[in-house]
């Protein structure tokens, strides 16, 4: 770990463009020990509060510093957004969730092994050096939206649920606040893989807002190599409502398949208004994975995602195989 300057923020305007923000520290400390991250200045935002979950306009505002454990345990979250609670509890371990924050979780970095090894070539870590993952060990990498510059995935669970739930991210900057749909918050690598999301230097996530609950079935399915403490191979977040025997609303998001939580409106459109059936689900799943492109070592993710989506839709609509 490189020596660094540490400050505690007392107000948001203490944060400068040169600062790297630390909240729960569950990811950045590991990366600093590996010298994947080498910030000269660290600012600790724990004194800034932002620890409340409050009701707004029929929805919820979750402060950026709400710990994952507290968010997943909140009665309103559990009642109205069980998808969010389940996704959070599918990640990490209790000890990590006790530290990890809502804002920090959104900003966690990829677990691409080449990104995590400073001597490997990585455009995300050291722009312009190349991508060793492209022809290397890329079992866990992207099947959607990758570029030749980066095939890493966003590894988290919570953001995938938030995407299916239609959440927005409130960002606080020097010139005020702005709100972006979570689907726009994370970005695809394109020519700038170093940039994970829309946050500009000096900006801070202040909260995440959820629209009014839509009811229906909410499912988070995380497929992984072991039962706990493993990142998803693929994950599916689904919020489905049925009316008069037909799918009234379908919100789907997919994790560990792209540089950002993945969404495909065409798949949702194909489901809405239809009677649930295995045939319909297979068609929707085929539509989704028809656009997937495997890397050299992760072709299995395509049938896996297809089957996982069919399983989730079946479970959500009580459709028997």
């Amino acid at each position: 770990m490189r020596p660094f300057e540490y400050r505690r923020a007392t107000k948001p305007s203490d944060i400068s463009a040169a600062d790297r923000i630390i909240a729960g520290g569950t990811n950045i400390l590991d990366l600093m020990k590996l010298e994947v991250e080498v910030p000269a200045q660290i600012i600790d935002i724990n004194p800034l509060g932002m620890t409340e979950i409050s009701e707004i306009d029929g929805g919820l505002r979750i402060g950026a510093m709400v710990r994952n454990t507290d968010c997943a345990a909140d009665a309103r979250v559990r009642r109205d957004y069980p998808l969010l609670a389940r996704a959070i509890l599918a990640g990490a371990s209790p000890q990590l969730r006790n530290r990890a924050t809502t804002g920090g979780n959104l900003c966690q970095r990829t677990r691409c092994s080449y990104f995590m090894q400073p001597e490997a070539r990585c455009n995300k870590r050291d722009p312009g050096t190349g991508c060793d993952a492209l022809h290397g060990v890329n079992r866990s990498h992207a099947i959607f939206g990758a570029s030749e510059n980066c095939i890493a995935t966003y590894p988290g669970d919570m953001a995938v649920a938030l995407l299916a739930l239609g959440a927005s991210v409130e960002i606080l900057g020097r010139t005020g606040t702005r709100s972006v749909p979570i689907g726009d918050f994370h970005r695809l690598p394109e020519h700038q893989p170093a940039k994970d999301n829309l946050l500009e230097p000096g900006e801070l996530i202040s909260s995440v807002t959820l629209p009014p609950a839509m009811g229906g079935a909410q499912i988070y399915r995380k497929v992984r190599d072991r039962s706990s403490f493993a990142f998803a191979l693929v994950s599916v977040a689904a919020a489905i409502t049925i009316a008069d025997g037909r799918i009234r609303h379908a919100a789907l998001a997919f994790g560990s398949v792209a540089h950002k939580p993945w969404q495909d409106p065409a798949v949702e459109t194909a489901l809405v208004g239809q009677e649930p059936s295995l045939k319909l689900f297979a068609q929707a799943a085929d539509l989704l994975v028809g656009k997937a492109k495997a890397q050299s070592g992760n072709a299995f993710k395509i049938p896996l995602l297809r089957r996982a989506l069919i399983a989730v839709l079946s479970e959500a609509t009580n459709t028997e195989a």
Binding site: Q117, A120, R226
Partner: peptide, 17 residues
């Protein structure tokens, strides 16, 4: 190069397994 050189990436069974 060994790609999974820690207990996060090298998957020993966890309690839930």
């Amino acid at each position: 190069r060994l790609m999974n050189h820690d207990l996060e990436q090298y998957h020993l069974p966890v309690h839930a397994d």
